[in-house]
Amino acid sequence: MRVMVLVKATGDSEKGFSPTPETMEMMEAMGRFNDELEAVGILVTADGLKPSSDGKRVAFNGSSRTVIDGPFTEARELVAGFWLWNVKDMDEAVAWVKRCPNPMPGPSEIEIRPLYEMSDWQ
């Protein structure tokens, strides 16, 4: 089963990355975690996202398209990073997320969402 593991944004992540000793230690811990995921064949890809101030949204309404510049409000509803994993089931995904180092300097959340598979459409 494939899952998208989403690191939810925080006020800190929306300020952007600054290489402090704390953030560098956090990134090193996350690198070790990613190495572990890769070693057992779970990790497909992973990356961090720049703050929403660097992003854009495109709103659709029929044939109309409206471009909206970031930053976007409600940091807790945004995504700061992601993994794509191949796991046997949701329980395995949860177990791995529980082992993950905290991805933010303070309180944070990680969301796990299964991807649609071809078998879901049959």
Rank of each mutant, 00 (worst) to 15 (best):
P107I: 12
S108A: 15
D69Y: 01
I68E: 10
I112E: 10
E74Q: 01
V79G: 07
I68M: 04
P114L: 08
G81W: 00
A75T: 03
T66A: 05
F72E: 09
P105H: 01
I110Y: 08
P105I: 11
S64D: 11
I110S: 03
W85E: 11
I110A: 07
R76V: 13
N102H: 06
A95F: 11
T66H: 04
N86T: 14
K98I: 08
N102W: 12
W85A: 08
N61A: 15
T73N: 15
G62E: 00
S108Q: 15
P114S: 01
F72I: 01
V79P: 15
G106S: 08
F82D: 06
I68W: 00
V79E: 12
N86R: 10
P107L: 13
M90F: 13
P114A: 06
F82T: 00
D89N: 07
A93H: 06
A80D: 10
M104W: 12
P105T: 00
R99D: 02
D89L: 11
P103G: 05
I68Q: 09
S64N: 15
P105A: 06
F72G: 13
S64V: 15
M90N: 11
M104Q: 14
R113M: 06
G70K: 01
G106E: 10
G70W: 05
V97M: 09
R99E: 07
T73Q: 15
T66K: 00
V97E: 10
P114W: 03
D91F: 11
R99F: 11
S63K: 09
D69N: 04
V79T: 05
R99L: 08
G106Q: 08
C100Q: 05
V94T: 05
A75M: 13
D89V: 07
T73R: 15
P114M: 03
N61L: 13
M104C: 13
S108C: 15
V94I: 08
G106F: 14
G81H: 02
V67D: 03
G81M: 06
E74W: 01
M90S: 12
T73G: 14
W96C: 07
P114K: 09
N61F: 14
V79C: 09
V67A: 00
P101I: 07
T66G: 09
A75S: 08
V67F: 01
D69L: 00
W83N: 07
A93V: 06
I68Y: 01
A75R: 10
A75N: 12
A95K: 05
V87R: 10
T66C: 06
P71H: 02
P103V: 00
E111C: 09
W83M: 09
N86G: 08
I112L: 11
D69K: 02
V87L: 07
W96H: 06
P107E: 15
E111L: 08
P107R: 14
E111W: 00
E111S: 05
L84D: 03
L84R: 04
K88P: 09
D91K: 14
E111K: 06
N102L: 12
S63W: 05
W85V: 03
S64A: 15
K98Q: 07
V94K: 12
E74I: 00
R65D: 11
W83Y: 14
E77H: 11
P71A: 02
